[in-house]
Computed example of a mutant assay.
Amino acid sequence: MKLKNKFLSLAGIFIIFFAPVGYAEISNNIISFSTEVEKEVQYDLLEATLFIQSEDKELKSATKQVNSKINAALDIIRNVKSVEIKENSRTTHVRYNSKNKQDGWIAYGKLVLESQDDEQLAKVLTQLDGILAIDSLRPSVSSSALLNIEDTMIKDVLKQFQHKANLIRSSLNAKNYKIQELSITTPVNQNKYAPRMFQASNTKSYDSSVDIDLGESKTLLKANARARIEIIFE
């Protein structure tokens, strides 16, 4: 497996856009409006979701097969420090036949792995060939990177707020304005940043000959401010 696009350092790759679309409502010298800023950043994290499913007439047998595969996978993964296990879950469901009668059990196990080292994660996936199947691969932005970006985006969106508030004040020939309400939403508290998803739900196992194209490996983060200000004329 070759991951074509290496995740680069986040430093120095920010591109700032100021969204032109907003709104303004005026009522009794109170004006409500919003402003938004965007930053284009590169992903610095790769997430892999793997699974194993087993069916059997006996619950013990079905769960034993899943546990055996998951434990074998964990022994491999734990030897690679740069790959983290973010989720390790097991579930069981009743299996029904065509007459809607119980005739067995379905056991399911899932592991979610994360790493900022795509080469090491690729090696782990190769070693897991024949043990677990890949459900999806998803590049994303790490929590630490989001926190670092948040400070910059808050400053940018507040700068835009001040610019827009002063523009409204001067356009109305007012002397000043007073903030009545101001709320800021960032990628951290939004918990979303349009991640790319690569599905492999029909894959029986990992095929190391397949290249995974991550595109430009970038995402667009947004922060917005919603404000209510009082326009002061005297």
Rank of each mutant, 00 (worst) to 15 (best):
L50F: 07
D44Q: 10
K101F: 05
N71Q: 12
E119V: 15
N71G: 04
L128E: 00
Y96K: 14
L121G: 06
S34V: 08
D103G: 10
I26G: 01
K99D: 10
N79P: 00
L45T: 06
V94H: 00
S82V: 07
N71K: 07
T91H: 03
V37I: 13
E58W: 04
I16K: 13
I134F: 02
A133T: 06
F51T: 10
S34T: 15
S32D: 14
N97A: 07
A72I: 00
A48H: 02
E114N: 10
L50D: 01
F33M: 03
W105F: 15
V21T: 15
Y23Q: 13
K39P: 01
Y108L: 12
S61E: 11
N71P: 05
K57H: 09
G104C: 01
G109I: 04
S68E: 08
G22Q: 09
V124F: 01
E84P: 01
Y43E: 00
S82H: 06
L125A: 00
Q102N: 12
L74I: 11
G130P: 09
V41A: 07
I134Q: 05
I52S: 03
E114T: 13
L74V: 07
N79R: 14
G22T: 07
I13T: 09
Q116P: 06
E58N: 14
Q65F: 11
H93F: 10
L111S: 04
L45I: 08
T49P: 02
G22I: 02
L128Y: 02
I76V: 14
D56W: 05
L45W: 03
I70E: 02
D129S: 13
H93W: 11
L132K: 00
L74P: 04
I31A: 14
S54W: 04
S89A: 13
E40S: 10
I52W: 08
I77L: 01
V124R: 04
V37M: 03
I13A: 10
I70D: 05
T92L: 07
K69M: 11
R90G: 02
Y43G: 05
D44G: 12
S32F: 06
T63H: 03
T49C: 00
S98K: 12
Y43D: 00
L121C: 00
S32M: 08
D44Y: 12
K99Q: 12
